Each structure stands twice: as C-alpha cells, then as structure tokens.
Amino acid sequence: MAYTIGSGDSADRRLLGLSWSHFLNDGAATFLPGILPALLIQMQLSVSLAGTIMAALLVGQGLQPLVGLLGDRFGGRTFVVLGLLGSSAGGAMIGFVETPSALIGVLVLIGISNSLFHPQALAGVRLLAHERQGSAMSFFLVGGEIGRGVWPALASLVVVHIGMGYLWLLSIPALFTLPLLWHWAPSLARRQADTTPIAWRAHAGPLTGLVLFCALRALIIFTVITFVPVLWSQAGGGLTAGASFITVLMVVGVIGNLGGGRLADSKPTRPILVAAMLISSALLVAFVLLDGVWLWLVLAALGVALFSTLPLTILIAQDILPENRSFGSGLALGLANAIGALAVIALGPVAAHCGAAAPLEVAAVCGVIAGLLALWLPQHKTSAAI
C-alpha cells in the first residue's frame, strides 16, 4: 500500500504541527473532568452519575475503528480536520448547556469528533516518521497528553474566575489552526480494491488481547481523572486544585510517553508493558493510602508508568494490520477507550455507595490483570527490523 506526501514543509515541521493539533483536539475533547464537580453541583446531579457523564464523552471513541476503515479506504486527511473542528466546537458548547440531556448530546458530539481526528492522524505520523517510528509516535502523542493535562486546569480557572459561559475562549486557538492543519497532515493514499484483505482469523487473537489490554489501561486512566477530582471536592478541596491532579498525571506522563517511544525503537516491548502495568497498580494502592504532597508525587509516577505503554500499543496494532494502519490505530485507541469508558459507568454507583476511593481500588486490580495479559501480546518490530 503506497502512501504519498505532498511537497511543502519538512517532515519534522509537519510532525510538530500535528502534535500541536493533537494538543488542541484532546484538550478540547477532555477538559470535562476539571469542571465535572462544578457541573454536578450546577445541574444538581448525584456523584453516581459522574461515570455516566464521562462515558457519554468517551464512548464515541468506539467509532475510531470504523473511521479508520473509511480513512484507509478513501485516504486523504479530511477526517483529521473535521475532528479538530468538531471537538473544539463541542468544547465551546459545554458552557452553554443547561440540562443534563443537552450536556449528554454535546459530549457525544465531542466523542464522535475525537474519533474522526485520531486514526488518520496516527497513520500520517507513521508515514512522516520513516525511521524511529516509536519516537515520532511519542512526539505526536505527547501533544494530546499535554492537552488532556493542561485543559482541565485551564477550564477550571475559566469557570472559577469568569464563569462557565466563557469556556468558548479555549476554542479560539483551534480556529486559527484548522487551515494550517490541512497542510500539515499527510494526504493518505486510498486503499486499493485489489489489496490483500485483512486476515481476520490470523489477527483475531493478537488484536483481541491488545484491545483488552488497552481497554484496561483506559479504564484505569478514566477512573483516575473522573473520581480523583470528585474525591478531592468531597474532602473540601477547591475546583482548580482538583483539576491540578489531572494536570500532574497527564503532563508528567509525557516523560513516560517519550521514554516508551524511544524504548520501542530498540527494546522488546512486552517486558515494558508488564512492568508498567504492575507498577501502576502499586501506585494506585499507594494513592489511596497516602495523603498530602505524596498524592501529587504518586500521580506523577502513575502518569509516567501508564503513558509509557501508549506508543507501544499503537505501534503493535499497526504492526498487526500494516495495510490498515488507521484501522489498527482505531482499535487500539478508540475501541479500547470506548470499552474502558463503558466500564466507568459501573464505577459511579460504586463511588456513591462505597466512597470515591473505591473505584481506584478496582482500577488497581485491573492493572494487575493488564500486566498478566501483556505477557501474551505481540512484540513490536523495531525500526531496524522493518
């Protein structure tokens, strides 16, 4: 399958532009946890609905495999641009909704738009990378990771100081970025009709294991970003301080993301995945038991451990489906995130009846299961072996 890159900016500059776009897209798509306690109070909703609200935002990511198939079939870069447009518009609309049903509708729109952005963008990054694909993938993913970390804090500051109705201010940078994104994103070639079809029987086992692993990791991440701010708010903490927990998890997690990508270029991936998930479980237990400044330090270490696995799993998915990289990326990221989001719904009642710390204990168990599952995942083919 041949991909094509148009003339213009250097690959490095275009990769930087894609990472910036990822920062804006994921920031707009995932700042909800930073203002979730305020939304629950404003709409007079129970904490038991926190998981349902987050799931409404995230479940749309389950469309990523379908978007990936369409992206591989038709090529181009339209989905990437439409994704950033929809995520940013939806993020701006959150400040104007007045009912739970309207909120759910906007969140679903954001989730669908997020699905549009990622598959073609991830395939384009691998195209731009040529060599050192792990490092390039990490660089792109770091943009989204920082966006998911910074935007909740920014959104909470907007809500606290000038009001919910001014969240649209956060969407202004995306308006100026959209025309540039059309030039930064590679135009992917169409998948030819005579291309070898996907060997579903051969890929079913590895893909199933990979999606389950990624879904457990997603459940852990979504549990932390959903219930830690709520737990902090219930203990009397402020909205901005609660959002800062998410910022620490995501932004410090950049270290793990970059480190995982570099390791993927030269080291076996399976031991990294196993160790990262087992360490994550231990850190979740520590977070429940500790207090004070230790909470931020533990979340920082948790971010490093969890996000070190992200570039590895996307590369493994693309290895399994080399002729359908957008589709493979959609499975490892979008479908897995949707499964994790649906599981978070069940943790809302757990938090209501057993306390907001209980979902974190469940997440710790999921980390152990993911670590064991990683023993059977395929190894990523390093750049030297491709």
Rank of each mutant, 00 (worst) to 15 (best):
P186L: 11
L289A: 14
R126N: 12
V160P: 03
L273R: 01
P152F: 07
L175I: 15
P229A: 10
Q379C: 05
I104G: 05
A351G: 05
P37W: 09
G75C: 06
S48D: 10
M164N: 05
R73D: 01
V254F: 01
H161M: 03
V106I: 15
M93N: 01
E131S: 15
G17Y: 12
L312P: 10
I41Q: 14
E323R: 07
G330V: 02
S383R: 12
A38S: 13
W168R: 02
L16E: 03
A50R: 03
A193W: 00
P359Q: 01
I386Y: 11
W168S: 04
A363R: 01
L49R: 13
G330E: 10
G328W: 08
Q42H: 14
W376L: 09
G34I: 04
L170I: 08
F327E: 02
G124D: 12
R190P: 07
P229V: 07
P378E: 09
L58C: 06
A356V: 01
S187R: 13
S19G: 13
E323N: 13
F117V: 00
R14V: 12
P311V: 08
G95H: 11
G60Y: 14
I5R: 07
L122H: 10
L315D: 10
I146Q: 02
V274Y: 02
L128N: 03
P271F: 04
L302I: 00
A102C: 02
G367P: 06
L175S: 06
L239H: 09
F79N: 06
A193T: 00
F213M: 00
A384S: 12
A343S: 12
L181P: 01
I320C: 07
A384W: 09
R201T: 14
L180P: 03
S21N: 04
A153N: 03
G163I: 10
G371L: 00
F287E: 03
D319A: 08
A89G: 14
T223N: 00
W20F: 15
S21Q: 03
T177P: 00
G330H: 07
P268L: 08
V254W: 00
G91I: 10
G253R: 03
A338Y: 05
A241F: 03
A129S: 14
L45C: 08
A92S: 13
L219S: 12
P197E: 05
I246S: 12
M54I: 15
G163W: 10
G330S: 08
P37K: 07
I41P: 00
T78E: 11
A341R: 11
